[in-house]
Computed example of a mutant assay.
Amino acid sequence: MNPVRESRVQRVRHELKRRDVEVVKVEPLGRHFVAVTFRGEELADFVSASFDDHVKFIFDDGGAEPVRRDYTPRRYDREARELTIEFALHGDGKASSWARQAAVGQRATIGGPRGSMIVPIDYAWHLLAGDATALPAIRRRIEELPSSVRAIVVVACEDVATLTSAAQLDVWQVADGAALVEAIRAIPLPPDDAFVWFGGEASIAAKVRDVVHGEKGFPRTASRISAYWKEGASDHHEDL
Rank of each mutant, 00 (worst) to 15 (best):
Q10D: 14
R11D: 14
R11G: 09
L16K: 09
K17L: 15
K17M: 12
R18V: 14
D20M: 08
D20S: 14
V21A: 09
E22I: 13
E22T: 15
V24F: 07
K25L: 12
V26M: 11
V26C: 07
V26D: 10
P28W: 08
L29Y: 02
T37G: 08
F38V: 11
E41M: 10
A44M: 03
F46T: 10
A49D: 15
A49R: 06
S50H: 07
S50Q: 07
S50P: 08
D52R: 00
D52A: 07
D53L: 11
D53A: 11
K56D: 13
K56C: 04
I58M: 05
F59G: 07
D60S: 14
D61L: 12
G62Y: 02
G63E: 00
A64P: 01
E65L: 11
R68A: 14
R68C: 10
R68Y: 02
D70F: 04
Y71G: 01
Y71H: 06
Y76I: 02
D77V: 01
D77R: 01
R81E: 13
R81N: 10
E82K: 03
E82A: 08
L83T: 03
T84C: 02
F87P: 00
A88P: 03
L89I: 13
H90N: 12
G91H: 13
G91W: 13
G91T: 13
D92W: 03
A95C: 12
A95N: 08
S96L: 08
S97K: 13
A99N: 06
A102R: 07
A103R: 14
V104M: 10
G105Y: 11
Q106I: 09
Q106D: 08
R107S: 13
A108T: 07
I110C: 07
G112T: 02
R114E: 05
M117Y: 03
P120I: 11
P120N: 10
D122Q: 07
Y123S: 04
A124L: 04
H126V: 12
L127G: 02
L127D: 06
L128T: 12
L128M: 15
A132F: 06
A132R: 07
T133C: 11
T133R: 04
T133P: 03
A134V: 01
I138E: 14
R139L: 05
R139T: 08
R140N: 01
I142D: 08
E143C: 04
S148H: 11
A151D: 03
